[in-house]
Design a protein around this nucleic acid. Structure first.
Lengths: 248, 248
DNA sequence: ATTAGTTGTGTCAATGTGACACAAAACTAT
DNA sequence: ATAGTTTTGTGTCACATTGACACAACTAAT
């Protein structure tokens, strides 16, 4: 592997969220030779835009393109990377000496979070230095390498904040979904239960949902209405941001 | 100047805001040999934390320490930097050939914004490749180099958003200030006029202001009350963030 | 003293929020 | 079929917040 095509000192890490079976999940990679997991990451080619680099990482791991992807923070502590793991990988001949030199640099890492549709991701794909790649439930995240736990926590924090301004769900839910499902998504993100009736009222007030006139059956109780997003209005809300009173 | 102490590929730019004579200002540097201005920026030493690097830039330009400073975005377009200006500086012998090599790298730039008290900044200080450094009114910003206009615009956008969650003013206003002054600050940031009475009501409801029992006189009209921030509550509000209803 | 310009306080209607109750629908077990 | 279980859709009501105002009080200049 030739790393000279990449910008030195700069890496990026992606927190890839999805929502499946009523729980929030992220993609993690199991590192070789160490009992720790990591966020999928990568580097930026010399001739590549930063955001394009992030898209590439995403494509590599999920096979998806044109996904909701957002920069949220740069992690730049001087001691955020450590040589131990790299040395181990050399000893186990997973990395060559030359490759190790690259990884032993000091990196700052640009954190991105992505929102993807679980169903559309066929099989998360690992890279050279990891032996597995899979979806992990947010409240069952194992020990991570380096500062990746901080990165994950910060991503969630930003996602939570962004919820105040923006609609969410288009990228995380299937084409059609019920309001209770959307509510669960919100609850998982903000970490607390919401009142059904108030949630419905507020959500419908945004006028970004379309009643498909269909219902989800087979659940052993009253069949909830299937909605889909009004994409035009959704995207409009996404960059205009909703609510906010006279000033804040 | 020896640049080998710095991390390659990485630079940072600071949008330093202050509020003076009822208007928002930023510090800009007049570039040598070209009729353009730039945001104060810098690089990160190999053994320095990223945020420490930003603090250092701030200290260098304003003389201030412990200032409100926040990362807001990374600018990483492949073509965001250009060789023309650097070549000119070499021709004019402002930069040596070796120094030029450093500047001709591709950089990603981490954007920071800072909020400082105008009064406490003695005299903004220029660097080697700039001939002047001064406060410029936000609506009188001249042509800037590279993508600095975008950086400035994005900084303002973030400042505006952050206003929704956070108190502001402690870093921008003098120790004591009047409510109309605070209101003008808000108006300049969000770019529109606010209703005096509603502004006062909302601001006081946050309970972060202390009535100093003094008034500002000499204005030719009713003397407004001087307030100061309750620092404890202010800082608490800063990291807890105020308002936000049941979910968003 | 009068005037001009602003500030502090208060009111009121409209809207939004939080806390609830109840009936309707779909499946299950009998 | 019928009754029971569960969860959904709808609606109400008190309370808080918001946006749009009117008025009196105060300071300096004339």
């Amino acid at each position: 592997m030739d790393f000279s095509i990449y910008l030195p000192s700069v890496s990026l890490d992606c927190v890839i969220f999805s929502f499946h079976q009523q729980s929030l999940k992220v993609i993690l990679l199991k590192m070789r030779g160490i009992d720790r997991w990591a966020l999928p990451g990568g580097f930026i080619a010399q001739d590549q835009d930063l955001n394009a680099g992030a898209s590439e990482v995403l494509k590599l791991r999920t096979g998806l393109e044109n996904i909701f992807l957002r920069q949220f923070h740069v992690f730049g502590a001087q001691d955020r990377t450590g040589p131990e793991h790299v040395r181990l990988l050399v000893k186990q001949k997973i990395l060559t000496q030359k490759e190790a030199t690259w990884f032993l640099q000091r990196f700052i890492s640009i954190g991105y979070y992505a929102l993807v549709n679980y169903e559309e991701v066929l099989e998360p794909r690992p890279d050279e230095i990891s032996e597995a790649c899979s979806w992990v439930e947010l409240d069952a995240v194992p020990q991570l390498v380096l500062d990746h736990e901080q990165i994950l926590a910060k991503a969630l924090e930003h996602l939570r904040k962004d919820l105040h301004y923006q609609p969410i769900g288009l990228n995380l839910l299937p084409e059609e979904f019920t309001l209770p499902e959307l509510q669960t998504l919100y609850e998982k993100i903000i970490g607390k239960k919401l009142d059904r009736r108030n949630f419905r009222r507020k959500m419908l007030s945004h006028k970004i949902l379309i009643d498909t006139q269909k219902r989800r059956t087979g659940l052993g109780h009253k069949a909830p209405i299937l909605y889909k997003f009004d994409k035009t209005k959704y995207l409009e809300a996404l960059d205009r941001g909703f609510q906010s009173s006279e000033f804040y």
